[in-house]
């Protein structure tokens, strides 16, 4: 196996196995699905945090931020226990015939969502907070009901914050390792994601394959981020001078 010059296009692809490609595909699926779900589910939470006067807010904020500071293995460990056949959630699912969630794609999506929660909630919360106050009062005096206000005032004004949240979550899931390893179990072709496949290649001294996969990840991330910054820039022009 040639260990040098893995940078030509042919060798880039020749080093990749089917398992590598499916790991990459799985990673993208995981990142996309968990990001979309997270954006939808985190929006009400972010809105509540941005608008509430409740004294429990600080507690909830701390809880939401927790995945940011804990080692991924800690989160993964408890999720594995929770979602596994003996866990509160996994056990109930197992008994009802659905089956537990350890070493499944669904389990990985849940883990990704927990892991990326603070990266989604915080930019959204900041955006929502900036898009509330006077503009919402104005909308209310113009006959706009609460949900209508959220849809036609808060969301459009929070576009950039939501976009940022989505990118952070997506990128974060691409790079996820420890937690996914715990909950997914690294089953090639089923729950093996790109970051873990790279680790396996390095472990087995297959540097060419590790290079190939790594470069592909870098490329994908770079294209995504460039796209987002370009989009952001355009909407940035629109919202320039936004002050209320």
């Amino acid at each position: 196996m040639p260990e040098s010059a893995p940078f030509s296009a042919t060798s880039l692809f020749s080093a990749l196995t089917m398992d590598d490609l499916s790991a990459l595909w799985l990673t993208l699926q995981l990142a996309l699905i968990s990001t979309l779900l997270l954006l939808i589910l985190a929006a009400p939470l972010a809105w509540w945090l941005a608008s509430t006067q409740s004294r429990y807010r600080v507690v909830i904020e701390a809880l939401v931020t927790l995945p940011m500071v804990l080692p991924p293995t800690v989160m993964g460990f408890y999720l594995l226990i929770l979602l596994g056949p003996e866990g509160w959630i996994g056990g109930v699912l197992e008994q009802s015939g659905v089956g537990h969630l350890a070493f499944t794609f669904t389990g990985m999506v849940i883990a990704s969502m927990v892991f990326s929660l603070p990266f989604v909630v915080q930019p959204m919360q900041n955006a929502f907070a900036a898009a509330s106050g006077r503009v919402l009062e104005l909308a209310a005096t113009l006959r706009s009901a609460p949900l209508d206000r959220f849809r036609h005032v808060v969301l459009p004004l929070s576009k950039r914050g939501i976009l940022t949240a989505g990118v952070l979550s997506f990128a974060h899931t691409l790079g996820e390792f420890g937690m996914i390893l715990m909950i997914g179990g690294n089953i090639p072709g089923r729950t093996q994601v790109a970051s873990i496949a790279i680790y396996d290649h390095v472990e087995s001294m297959n540097y060419a394959a590790a290079h190939s996969l790594s470069l592909l990840l870098i490329l994908i991330s770079l294209v995504l981020l460039t796209l987002v910054f370009a989009l952001n820039r355009r909407s940035g022009l629109l919202s320039a001078g936004y002050s209320l």
Partner: peptide
């Protein structure tokens, strides 16, 4: 508020920053 038939003009001329003047006028 949104069910009261009122118009309110705020001191600092509050407008929706994401709309054009026409969209703003038609909002209510």
């Amino acid at each position: 508020v949104h069910q009261r038939s009122l118009g309110y003009v705020f001191q600092e001329a509050s407008l929706f920053p994401h709309l054009t003047v026409q969209q703003q006028l038609l909002f209510g």
